[in-house]
Design a protein around this nucleic acid. Structure first.
Lengths: 143, 143
DNA sequence: GGATCTGTTACCATATTAGATACAGACAAC
DNA sequence: GTTGTCTGTATCTAATATGGTAACAGATCC
């Protein structure tokens, strides 16, 4: 459906490989193949979540706010997509029906558990590992 | 985001409680609080996945194709939403950049693992349990 | 044969997504 | 302190997804 998670991971992997060098939204957009404004929108969400910081002005750009080994894909998911996994009914179910009256409560607990499981799996990968994978694959392709 | 999963679980829970009695799309729509055509669309996906069958004509309607204890929320997810968790980049990343060239491959494995974790958690709940929860809550509310 | 119900299609309104442009504000360089 | 660079945000647009609605051919029951 939406590609925010993929693009956000892409951005952060670039920042991890930059090793403290600030990257401009234009430079990042060149790798992602999109436009700088979209990159800045995502960086805005990542900064709100405490994952990145920015330096204004000439020579500025985006920076990781933490060590690459301390940021997980789960952090990225929560920053850009969190809590949007499943929606409940758009219209409230019929309260005159036993199932309609209770289904949403029964579902909420299961949906929350599923989201926890998803995030726990995403938490098993750090940006450092993503950067390493991309380095290795790039080296392999260059041989 | 989308409510297909919630509505599909609602439909199947109704069928589980009906205990072999066929329910019409109009009857189901009354509980979900939507219109019969949408219900039939979802039932169509559920039937393709082998979760329901239908009886045409007067006195007909939808039926569970399996025992309520043999259908999990993971089955429902796969039937109506499967494989749509995360999208990759809409435009292909820049192949001239080491990260752009390799990020999608590195992401695909992690996304697949996350989806497996999500489905495994959903597989822990069956329709029988959903029906029991709704019965219990309904009884509690009636006291 | 007539009534009922499914399965599918088509159409519409709305919401979401992402591409694009614009501009005020922050900061660096000089 | 003036100029240039870059961020952060708002706005607009096009494409797509979602769900509400109507319509109708086909299957089945009575």
């Amino acid at each position: 459906m939406n590609s925010r998670f993929a693009v956000a991971v892409h951005i952060l992997t670039l920042l991890a490989e930059a090793g403290g060098e600030p990257l401009t939204s234009e430079r990042i957009a060149g790798s992602v193949n999109t436009n700088p404004s979209l990159v800045r929108r995502l960086l805005s969400a990542l900064a709100r979540a405490g994952l990145t910081t920015a330096r204004h002005g000439a020579g500025g750009g985006a920076l990781l706010a933490k060590a690459p080994g301390a940021v997980t894909l789960g952090d990225v998911y929560r920053a850009v997509d969190g809590g949007e996994l499943f929606a409940l009914h758009r219209e409230r179910p019929n309260p005159a029906c036993p199932v309609g009256r209770t289904i949403q409560g029964a579902l909420e607990a299961r949906i929350a558990a599923a989201e926890r499981a998803l995030e726990a799996e995403l938490d098993r990968t750090t940006l450092a590992e993503m950067a390493r994978d991309c380095q290795g694959a790039a080296a392999g392709a260059a041989r």
